[in-house]
């Protein structure tokens, strides 16, 4: 039987916390940018102008058809050198965190766009008609009347997607960027206590994500019912 030795954990906590900050940072940026860009994509998708709606549909389709791991690798292997050439930065600049944030934001925007599209379509057409009948332009109708309601309707789904995003940040492992999971692995590998660290990391994720899901359920019942 395997001898469990949890003594690595206390000493590693500061390092793990650094990793957690990376995880949370990527999540925050990707959620904010993802929702913004995703909403733009959703509006584009519903636009009567063919090229615009086709572009948005293609974007969403492609990013939803490929694995996140592949997108992260793509951003890790190709984009930094591309950006350095374009922006003229030195090879020493560490673009890994930026690449990861950009990759996540662009990827998740496709998922957020589908949520927002459903949200926009869930607002009754009469609302748009009423806004137009008052003399608002289509843009005004979208901004003041439709989007606020769409957003409100979709809050639980937007939050749930954020929780999934947080879990997905563990995948930056493939670019050797030290998020919480990567940090836990490093410690476990270094100390020869990989099993304990992996189980610890799993437990931490479990506690955080279940608590967050429970909070979203509570929100749904109390505030939005």
């Amino acid at each position: 039987m395997y001898e469990f030795d949890w003594s690595s954990i206390p000493g590693a906590l500061p390092f793990l916390w650094q990793g957690m900050k990376v995880s949370l940072g990527i999540t925050a940026v990707a959620v904010a940018v993802g929702i913004a860009w995703g909403t733009v994509l959703a509006v584009m998708r519903l636009s009567p102008a063919r090229p615009v709606s086709l572009f948005a549909a293609a974007y969403v389709s492609v990013f939803r058809s490929v694995p996140l791991v592949m997108v992260l690798l793509w951003f890790f292997l190709i984009v930094p050198s591309l950006l350095r050439d374009v922006l003229g930065l030195s090879h020493a600049t560490d673009l890994r965190l930026t690449s990861a944030m950009v990759a996540f934001a662009l990827f998740e925007a496709a998922y957020y766009s589908e949520i927002m599209r459903a949200g926009i379509q869930s607002v009754s057409k009469g609302q748009r008609s009423a806004a137009l009948a008052l003399g608002m332009t289509p843009w005004q109708a979208m901004w003041y009347v439709v989007l606020p309601q769409a957003f409100r309707n979709m809050v639980p789904l937007l939050l749930t997607q954020a929780i999934i995003l947080f879990q997905d940040t563990s995948l930056v492992y493939v670019s050797a960027l030290a998020d919480f999971f990567g940090a836990a692995y490093k410690v476990g590998d270094r100390d020869g206590r990989l099993a304990e660290m992996l189980l610890f990391a799993g437990a931490v994720y479990f506690v955080l994500c279940s608590a967050a899901s429970w909070a979203v359920r509570l929100l749904r019942r109390r505030v939005l019912a």
Binding site: Q167, D168, S170, L171, Y173, F181, Y185, L198, L199, A201, G202, Y205, F206, C209, S210, S213
Partner: peptide, 13 residues
């Protein structure tokens, strides 16, 4: 349990 632990962590475990 299986929805609140990242897939990568589960795989490594």
């Amino acid at each position: 349990i299986f929805r609140n632990v990242p897939l990568l962590a589960q795989l490594f475990i």
